[in-house]
Amino acid sequence: MSLLEQQNFLARLYTDAALRRAFLLMPEKVGAENGLNEKEVTEIAEIMPEELNFFAESLFWKRLREVEKFLPLTKKVLAGELTEHFREFSQNFNPQTVNKHFEDALEFCRSLSKSKISELSKNVAKFEQKKLEFFGGGQRITICKLDFDIRRIVRQSADSQGESPKRKTKFAVWLRVNRKVKHFFV
């Protein structure tokens, strides 16, 4: 098996959980479906399943940790649910640009608008999405319409025991004036 073919298949095995599960269960069948001959299948199947899974998991966690750095508020409101949603998202998206973690975080926020999470969490994710779009895109102004007054969450003053934000239409605004950024709510 050439190194190129092996790397093509390994890259998919590392990043695609469904393919990995299927290959570990039925290497010959899945290998053949992906164009590998018997010898090639054996070569890859020789990698210990435990090592393969551990490495793939470590890649997932590294990716999640990088995304969390961009989304501190979404991480806070989603708490334990974040991992599960990111796992689902990560199976369908492979960032391609040089700013891969930024791209990943932005796309994850967009995907959360269609996820089964609370309306408040959707609002927080939308807020961080718009913020990333503003800083990443260099627009003069970005306005984000929100259904909740999330100012306390944004100011990091709301702890998990605190009163949850009230439903109220709010607009978060980011503005560039003389190369300085202003951010406020109206």
Partner: peptide, 25 residues
Amino acid sequence: CFTRSGGVKIGHLAPVPYTKEAVRV
């Protein structure tokens, strides 16, 4: 290491098998 192949970005540093072919690459 290698970090991408066939249009897939692995997202981190992945090892290669220690072969003569890999040395040539």
